[in-house]
């Protein structure tokens, strides 16, 4: 139950049908769904974050501040959810190689550890300008979705939720070394996917 503080009696003033709020909600769902891979859990996390944001709505100044702030709240809701459910993932599943891991990192390199000709990273032309293009983000989402589930989970905990590797290791009961290997694998696969599907147009041979 809620506290009896008079501040709580203030009627909520966020307009749920405001197109800006609808867009915000959609972006939040995308963020949550990518990480929780469960529609119900994603909806819950977004709902809880929005309610928490509304309850403390004096804490933000403008729309962009609202967005950053609501995402910070959402991030915490997702972390809570992952903590509650981390134990349900058998550690052996996480540490296992092969299976759903997709093309192995080893295949990108020759025997001597040098890049194979077709997998050499090329120069990306003006990558930062991609960040303001919606199509780029669609490709980015698709690339993250194509990561093997366990690799994606570790990557998202590190990069989207900004957790340290120590904490990730603890939550998932894996070693640091294992964590670093999985992050390397995730970043390498993501880089490759973005190069093939977005930055590939760059006509420069290496």
């Amino acid at each position: 139950m809620t506290s009896d503080s008079p501040a709580d009696a203030k009627p909520p003033s966020l307009d749920w049908n405001d197109p800006a709020i609808l867009a915000l909600r959609r972006d939040m769902l995308k963020f949550a769904h990518l990480q929780l891979r469960d529609e119900g859990a994603a909806e819950d996390a977004v709902q809880e974050a929005l309610i928490a944001a509304m309850r403390h709505r004096d804490g933000f100044a403008g729309r962009s501040a609202l967005k950053t702030w609501v995402f910070a709240i959402l991030r915490n809701k997702i972390i809570d959810h992952l903590r509650k459910h981390a134990r349900e993932i058998p550690a052996s599943d996480l540490a296992r190689r092969g299976d759903d891991e997709g093309p192995d990192i080893e295949q990108l390199f020759e025997q001597d550890g040098h890049w194979t000709t077709q997998d050499k990273p090329h120069t990306w032309a003006d990558p930062e300008s991609a960040l303001s293009q919606k199509q780029f983000w669609a490709v980015f989402d698709a690339c993250v979705n194509h990561l093997p589930a366990n690799t994606a989970r570790v990557f998202m905990m590190r990069e989207f939720l900004d957790l340290g590797t120590e904490e990730i290791c603890q939550e998932l009961a894996i070693t640091s070394a294992n964590c670093w290997v999985m992050l390397h694998r995730a970043r390498t696969a993501l880089r490759r996917c973005l190069e093939n599907n977005w930055f590939g147009g760059a006509p420069k041979p290496c």
């Binding site: 867009a23 939040m28 963020f31 962009s64 967005k67 995402f71 990558p127 960040l131 293009q133």
Partner: peptide
Amino acid sequence: FLALAARRFREGRRPDG
């Protein structure tokens, strides 16, 4: 670049729909 993109995403700073 990947880290930068992830930060933008994390902060909700993707282009609006």
